[in-house]
Nucleic acid binder design. Sequence first.
DNA 1: CTGAAAGCGCTTACAG
DNA 2: CTGAAAGCGCTTACAG
Lengths: 342, 342
Amino acid sequence: MLMAAIGDVARLAGVSKATASRALSGRGHVAESTRHRVEVAAAEIGYIASPAAASLVTGRTMNVGVVIPFVNRWFFGEVLEGIERALLGAGYDLTLYNVGSAGQDRDRVFDFFLARKRVDAVIAVGVDLTERETASLDRREKPLVSLGGSGAGGARLSIDDRAAGALATEHLLHLGHTRIAHLAGEGALSNPESVHGCRREGFLEAMAAAGHASEADAHIVEAEMTMPGGYTGALQLLGHPGRRPSAVFAVSDEMAFGAIRAAERLGLTVPGDLSIIGVDGHEYAEMFGLTTIEQYPGAQGRLAVDVVLHLLGEDLADPLPDSGAPLPTRLVVRSSTTAAPR
Amino acid sequence: MLMAAIGDVARLAGVSKATASRALSGRGHVAESTRHRVEVAAAEIGYIASPAAASLVTGRTMNVGVVIPFVNRWFFGEVLEGIERALLGAGYDLTLYNVGSAGQDRDRVFDFFLARKRVDAVIAVGVDLTERETASLDRREKPLVSLGGSGAGGARLSIDDRAAGALATEHLLHLGHTRIAHLAGEGALSNPESVHGCRREGFLEAMAAAGHASEADAHIVEAEMTMPGGYTGALQLLGHPGRRPSAVFAVSDEMAFGAIRAAERLGLTVPGDLSIIGVDGHEYAEMFGLTTIEQYPGAQGRLAVDVVLHLLGEDLADPLPDSGAPLPTRLVVRSSTTAAPR
DNA sequence: CTGAAAGCGCTTACAG
DNA sequence: CTGAAAGCGCTTACAG
């Protein structure tokens, strides 16, 4: 009684376990009256199927693993919430693997945790996957969807980070700025395929196209993609006497917020003395008056789930959008950018 | 071959499935040489046990459910990361249920997802649990640890929120402030058992003890516990002509950051015109120069896991600290608070 | 539309 | 120390 099994339901409803199973799962034909009797019986004794038993025979766990390097940075948190909601809605569980850069923990997750038959599929968020990692999932025939980040294999979803970097830069160029600095993410130079690497490329391209290639190179500072990272990086950029930039393109909104504070600390007004643009559409952007290239991480997470469900053979109400097309972004101009001082 | 079973390992090692199982799990006696042969065989064919099969017979899933209302607020994100790391280290999976205030989603999580035999235990973070919810877990004999939040049943871990609120207020009183406002969390008044409800109580107690009871009541504003919430709330508090407070106790650091920006926007200097104190020890606190009552959410998450493992009968290396004792906090004074203007 | 039987891949008494 | 057998709780061909 403590843990009613399907046999108990069957007995109470006066049917076989097979029929009870069919009635409850909705697979296979069952007479309407029978189904009703089974449902009543199940409700009466509070029957809930054992996922382990079901999984053992069906091979499906109704569980999706999510590999994500951060939980506490806005973009990642939003994606995670979007994924969770969509998965829950579809009756799936979400198993969280919070692992970042390569290392022991990450190997353990891929080699042990994900290799077991515990998840039906994997969503990797902002992870630069190694060949070994994708191959491992491939071998186990686990569908893989990756959102942002680099690596071959699996379905890939991402905005056009290079275009976003170029657009942000062009916005500043368009306002007449030429001394434009870039607050880049750590490893942007050494890892050009990464999200922040691509945005840096976009910055350089736009600057080169406008004839400021040499200017650009000298004005890139890499820092942690957080508000304190942006603060520290911007202090470095703005405190240097002489060639102070008149505009900064920050690779993320969180860094841009830090840059705003750094400017204020140095007595510079934004945007009077310094224009600042970010990328993300962070929920604080409005409060900071930040011009940014919005993206929609919550929707991205939900889309990743749609793709996963599709790969798992679930019928979806809505058709999937064009695969391969970059995810939507939008330039939102606020008060942190203005025309270059004459 | 694609998915090697324990029978394959046994055959290759020339032993029975029972022996292979014992050798691999470490339960029961196996000759050293036999164990070695089995391990070699398992490694050779890349054998990984099916958790579903094991769980079906042992009744253990090696999986802990975490119920958490936010992922993207600093305290919650830190707790979640702490829990994840500790669980992973102990070989457990973490299933994430991102549900907040009561509602359909939350009922579904407790009635369906958590009721199944899919998790061995539950950690609830910052959730005010209803009796029905704790009873449901109790009935299924699922250990429950809750961190912050209210509700009977299960092991409870939390800082002394009332004391934290009182201490923050006393710090300001000690500096000579009397017109002290409180930026409270939403629902602090209507839900006095909640985290922000307790901190509000502490504020009122300290103010009353100092003879400023009537002053206090008039200076409480409730807002969302985020930076924009703090910004909006503080604008309201500070923009009102006449009786402007000289100090603000914000229920969380994130709100305090918003209050700092609001003050600046209104042309007030911090701490010259306004002292501000928060609670949390947010990673941005140093950058903002914020005086705060630190707590240690990462360590809290790890501790919650220790308690859960203990309840699950796992032997722990370190003994558990006093149960019942509040979790540690520490007043860290920075540049956002100073003596009251004369 | 329904039931009897087999089987998913493990672990665990029970013998020896 | 090791093995044969039973069984965890489901689902799914296979019959009827």
